[in-house]
Design a protein around this nucleic acid. Structure first.
Lengths: 334, 334
DNA sequence: GTGAAAGCGCTAACAT
DNA sequence: ATGTTAGCGCTTTCAC
């Protein structure tokens, strides 16, 4: 019943229009030299048949598919925003997104292998990492890679864009101290990730430079469930910390709720809480979370620019996007 | 500098291995008849050269690309969850996802046109709609379409899966009445969408059948900002509604916050609030939102099954997924 | 401006 | 089991 009938080919259109198959190709190629009359004939025939150029065939010839491979970690907070912005941007340029998700700390290698088989024009890794061996091979094959929120690879031709995690962590520390909090704690995400390491380093280093002890610490794995445990543990210590910096907002929101509903603490006055990312919920009145915001749209714009750059262009090695400290009530003591 | 060097082809591998090019193809085709010895030779040569079969070429021959096109509306609440589940599921079957996002009520037509040019094996529309003209053409070309959370199309071969919106709306109504709420209000999403219409119909019809007046009503467009306005308006009415059913959870959460922080109402006792979808935040202690849950994983499983079904299979016309009423504290009067 | 012909990298008969 | 051959649907010389 549902035997797939082969879609009309350029040949079919050519026959109907009474021209050569090459003419059909030219009619669908923007800059091609073809008489307006012939093009119209072709387009009419094409419409009649419901012809649509087969991009696979075109890609086979050109060696480029018009497809951008995206591998995105399931931890990434701006998933939808980022993908939407990117999709819109790339669509305009006639590019498309072949997407994969990776769970947690898994490497993107397997997916990237697949992507290369489709001769993708470029790769974007968001909160996902790649073995340097594969990264090297991508470079060899001329596939530019843009990595977002992962450390710059030591491989040439690997563009890396990151939010300023170190600086952000430092600004949070400075802000908490300035607000008068003194017994600071840090809730780590997934310890091994660069994202976590940098946020923690920025925070801890600032404290140490100020002559303060390193903060108490628990690990929450960037997840709500982990954060609930970690928060209970931190808040049960004696002396109790008077402020907690969580490596991302998800954990910070969970921390606020544990503190408020399980420990009866007043957020801000009795316990300062700060996060990182400025996700949508951080600004909700229930939370009013002080956090460090990454300008997602600006970042995506930069990513898109690199992905769309002519292949001849030398990819920029590394760039850091400054965020902004968003001070809200979760760190107001009075 | 970055002239793209053509990747090694099957020919190159054949030459190095001292076999025919066809043998290389066979070495990479699971069921093919080839001597173990030859395959090993080929695989070794392939590894040496870094050969990877070009899927575009394969697709060109087979007429199917191994790609599933996904168009997803930016309103869709389970975006990440759904995509992750789907990606994992399809990867196992060697299929990949070409994705597009559509803003609001825009039709997916333009994107679907693009997708067809890539000879996608199937289409999945999540909270996005397609003109019936294009849907018909997909059917003609043998591209199965699965539509999630949009009304069943009147076109053959168009599988449609939906959460039970009508039933859910009814259950919410029954629950609110049973809790003793009497002055019910409804906050609509985007009025024209089937999602909204069905949720509203289920709710309103139940009330009318019970001999109650139709609920007061405002439109929140499925968005937080819209919901804030709508909630203010509803809560300023005299007599004030004592319960609000919002067409999705995003709006319900906003409503809770407006009621609590702007009107000083105690949620549950003074104002019942119910939502729809059971998004993650609904269960957070700050909200404890009563809502109707859709079993996303189960749905995706069903979607994947259809997408992966052999083309010969007749696509199931329409199927409804039952959800479950999640009663939480936002609708407890005492 | 247009057609004929070659070929992108692969699979699928068809021989052997 | 393996090599040979013919395309898949298109773009791109190259003549005209």
């Amino acid at each position: 019943m549902s035997k797939r009938p082969p879609p009309p080919s350029a040949h079919d259109v050519a026959r109907l229009a009474g021209v050569s198959q090459a003419a059909v190709s030219r009619a669908f190629t923007p800059g091609a030299s073809i008489a307006a009359a012939t093009r119209d004939k072709v387009l009419e025939a094409a419409k009649a048949l419901g012809y649509r150029p087969n991009l696979l065939a075109r890609s086979l010839i050109k060696g480029r598919s018009g497809i951008v491979g995206v591998v995105i970690g399931t931890h990434y907070p701006f998933f939808l925003t980022a993908l939407d912005a990117l999709s819109t941007r790339l669509s305009r340029a006639g590019k498309h997104i072949l997407i994969f998700t990776v769970e947690g700390d898994a490497t993107a290698d397997a997916h990237v292998e697949d992507l290369l088989k489709y001769r993708v024009d470029a790769l974007l890794l968001m909160a996902a990492s790649l073995s340097s061996k594969l990264a090297q091979r991508c470079r060899d094959e001329g596939v530019p890679i843009v990595s977002f929120n992962r450390p710059a690879r030591k491989v040439q031709g690997f563009a890396s864009i990151s939010g300023d995690s170190v600086g952000g962590g430092g600004k949070i520390a400075a802000h908490l101290l300035q607000q008068g909090y003194r017994r600071l704690a840090f809730m780590a995400g997934v310890t091994e990730t660069s994202t976590n390491r940098e946020r923690e380093a920025g925070f801890t280093d600032h404290l140490i430079i100020q002559g303060l002890p390193a903060p108490v610490r628990e690990v929450g794995h960037f997840r709500r469930e982990g954060a609930i445990e970690a928060a209970r543990s931190l808040l049960s210590r004696r002396p109790r910390p008077d402020a907690i910096f969580c490596a991302n907002d998800d954990m910070a929101l969970a921390t606020i709720e544990v503190a408020r509903y399980e420990f009866g603490l007043e957020i801000g006055r009795e316990l300062g809480v700060a996060g990182f990312d400025d996700i949508e919920q951080a600004a909700w009145p229930s939370f009013n979370l002080t956090t460090y915001s990454l300008p997602v749209d600006a970042v995506i714009e930069r990513v898109a620019a690199i992905l769309l750059a002519s292949d001849a262009a030398e990819p920029p090695a590394f760039s850091m996007v400054e965020g902004e400290l968003k001070v809200r009530r979760s760190t107001q003591r009075d």
